[in-house]
Design a protein around this nucleic acid. Sequence first.
DNA 1: CGTTTGGGTTAGCGGCAGTTAACCCAGTTG
DNA 2: CAACTGGGTTAACTGCCGCTAACCCAAACG
Lengths: 196, 196
Amino acid sequence: MQTRREQILAAAAELFARHGFHGVGIDEIGAAVGVSGPALYRHFRSKDAMLGEMLTSISETLLAGGQERRDAHEPGEVLGALIRFHVDFALDNPALITVQERNLGNLTDPDRRRVRALQRRYVEVWVQAIRDTTDGVDEPTARAAAHAVFGLINSTPHSRHLGRDGMATMLREMAVSALAGVRPGQQGESGLPAVS
Amino acid sequence: MQTRREQILAAAAELFARHGFHGVGIDEIGAAVGVSGPALYRHFRSKDAMLGEMLTSISETLLAGGQERRDAHEPGEVLGALIRFHVDFALDNPALITVQERNLGNLTDPDRRRVRALQRRYVEVWVQAIRDTTDGVDEPTARAAAHAVFGLINSTPHSRHLGRDGMATMLREMAVSALAGVRPGQQGESGLPAVS
DNA sequence: CGTTTGGGTTAGCGGCAGTTAACCCAGTTG
DNA sequence: CAACTGGGTTAACTGCCGCTAACCCAAACG
């Protein structure tokens, strides 16, 4: 059973994922849990706060899961465990994954800082695992590779053709292969610097 | 040199990518091109129309590029060409990629249908190329794999650590490896059916 | 040289969305 | 059993946002 807050957050996540943060009204969220409109203010200080809590809790869950995998496995096994973990999370929480990807920009400034910090630490776990697995790969490359694999795994919500388990196996194998394709060596420094 | 419409669309794309469609006001878009507010209505019928034209033109560009690659290469070479093409497009138009990923849901109904149709055809080109390369792989799997690779390549805007060319090489290699990791065979039918 | 036209301006309207106010009412609880 | 409290309701305020109106003005053009 879920507490009311969780119930609301789940419904809101679904809606935010589909229509974007600003595309969803307070009344719709209320309607989705059977109460109408301003009743939500008994549970959350504001709409922004809902998104804030949602994204913070996702990031915390990911970070905690990542650290756990890192601490519970031999260095050579960590990356595989991380992949399994992330694939499962993405497949079981497609709405959350979508919201986290799309709506970082709609967070309030302090919330965004918090979430960014958590995400950075999660990525760091991956970076370490990647560098432990394929040695010789520099840190920026490992970070970029991690982001690329997140993109691959998080593509899940956009293609629900295979069953949940078929999808899981395919994503795991693709992720493993993709990371195996990351070459150590040249820093790749040749293009223009970032714009932003 | 760009026509005014293109200039506006480019600015709008940048803003939509950062703050989401509903997070950007008409006035901000105007300000971004040096005119203020309702001047945009000399060039577009509505804000919705701007997004519509933006996404339609992206999808058309992708589809055209995909078909071109398919027609200009031996069957065995098509997939590689598609990868190069898509990687280049994503790296050179990060804002557009972001908007296309995030804001499909904010399109007007007819526009969304149009864009979806174009996207489907683009995906179909990939599916064909994948099945021609790794034979034995069924269509749903190929489609899911295509989406996964899009996710991988489109992760670009979120990680600008390497230079443009370093990023390009890495993404190409990861994409190739990821697709090489797609096994033919079992249909993966074991999970729950899609929710939506 | 008058006039059409493309592109711009500011003022203002109408609607909607987030939030607050005021009120209500079941349970629990001393 | 009175009183508190948690969770709900509807009405109303306020500010923003998309869009239209009305007006302006340079340059092209017959």
